[in-house]
Design a protein around this nucleic acid. Structure first.
Lengths: 234, 234
DNA sequence: TATATTTGTTAGACTTACCTAACAAATTAA
DNA sequence: TTAATTTGTTAGGTAAGTCTAACAAATATA
């Protein structure tokens, strides 16, 4: 069997990854708009426009003029590979090289583009086939299968419920440092004590202490809740 | 103290590395020509010409029209950093990820451009501060100090002398596989038994067996020889 | 030393990924 | 349902890194 390996640039890989993250991954929708992608990638809409045409040519995205865009099966496959590499590298940096969870993202952004199947498979083996990265995000396996956690954000959690922290939405260093400071971390048990109408703060119990968190913070904390059992949106 | 970090592209880093390898490192001379660099980098002389002007602008190379080029102090510093990264990655792949010595080079070519001081320092620590890579090449330390072995090639070795293999000049996979096949490897003891005028083959003893090797091969094998004690050229 | 060869340079062109500015289509609001 | 706003597109421009083709300088050879 002859397999054609189409070589993609770092940039092209990043567009596919962004599109994946804006659609399949965290969001509920199937498509993303040009401006939305531009904001996510930190470039101008005109640039995204050019790239969408190019990626459509290569049959990696579905795109029609003035329409929303989405990944093709092949495009999704590549996006998942990049995400797998990113998260394995993050795990490596955290587990083996003494990086803290707020430091891993930036370096993994570079490492995720290294081309070598053997490298990634061996890294996976060295780390003992981890299922999630330091931020709690699931790591796709070598077949491209991705465990989808039935998680929602802390902001959506009901008063009185107890849940467990499973990850974060925002991977920026300042946010992660703040999370650390508050004593929050993946696997911690969180109980929602109250929601204050007056200033929208959410009062929670964690580590046996009561703290108040902003809705902005709560929206970036993922949790699972057995009490909830609300049907997952994916 | 304010330090200005000038960000270089992968390409610029590769030019500095090539220039280092063609001058300071293996060769005896201090300068390299445009065509020579072009051949080493696999690009056309015209391209090198443009880049030399650009790197001169940035004070990383010394270059005058129609003259040979060399690295400035700052350029050499950067080249050594890239080489350090390359060789640490090669060692990592070989030691931790089960790569063979003919597989490490290609992947290290990509990894050497990742920007993160912490990454490299931690990698160095994880590997326990190695002094040479799987090909026997010395790894510069964090201060940019590079151990220079007083080595020469097997082709230069005198008949009757016994030496020890310390490295290879050619890092290509076919060459390295061939070296493996012949039973040659770093640290092996080699005795030069004879040189045959007729076909230039060199007869050596290694692993207790007599084999004949071509001058081409011998030119790509580094050895040290106590009997020789010939003054090193660097 | 004159000529041939090698080595290095210049000019102009291409591609990728980005930009700005002007415009067009689609959506939202009045 | 028209007008305002948002969203998306086009055209044209820039910088990096590459190329080819023509030329110039330096070096080697006769």
């Amino acid at each position: 069997m002859l397999t054609f390996v189409l070589m993609l640039s770092f940039t092209e890989e990043n567009y596919l990854k962004s599109l994946f993250q804006l659609t399949v991954e965290t969001a509920l929708k199937e498509e993303a708009g040009t401006n939305e992608l531009a904001a996510h990638l930190g470039v101008k809409p005109a640039t995204v426009n050019d790239m969408l045409k190019k990626l459509k040519e290569k049959k990696l995205v579905k795109y029609e003029k003035y329409g929303k865009s989405s990944l093709t099966k092949e495009g999704r496959k590549i996006a998942i590979e990049v995400i797998r590499k990113h998260r394995l590298w993050e795990t490596f940096l955290f587990e083996k090289l003494e990086f803290s969870w707020d430091e891993v993202h930036e370096v993994a952004e570079q490492l995720e583009h290294i081309q070598s199947k053997k490298l990634i498979d061996q890294l996976d083996k060295l780390l003992n086939y981890p299922v999630s990265d330091p931020h709690g995000d699931p790591i796709p396996n070598a077949k491209g299968e991705l465990l989808i956690l039935h998680q929602h954000t802390l902001a959506e959690e009901l008063v009185g419920h107890q849940c467990k922290m499973t990850g974060v939405k925002d991977n920026s260093s300042p946010f992660l440092k703040y999370v650390d400071q508050l004593g929050l971390a993946i696997t911690k048990t969180i109980k929602v004590l109250a929601r204050h109408e007056y200033d929208d703060l959410i009062e929670i119990e964690v580590n046996g202490k009561r703290i108040s968190v902003s809705p902005k913070l709560a929206e970036n904390i993922f949790v699972v809740c057995t009490a909830c059992k609300k049907k997952s949106k994916r």
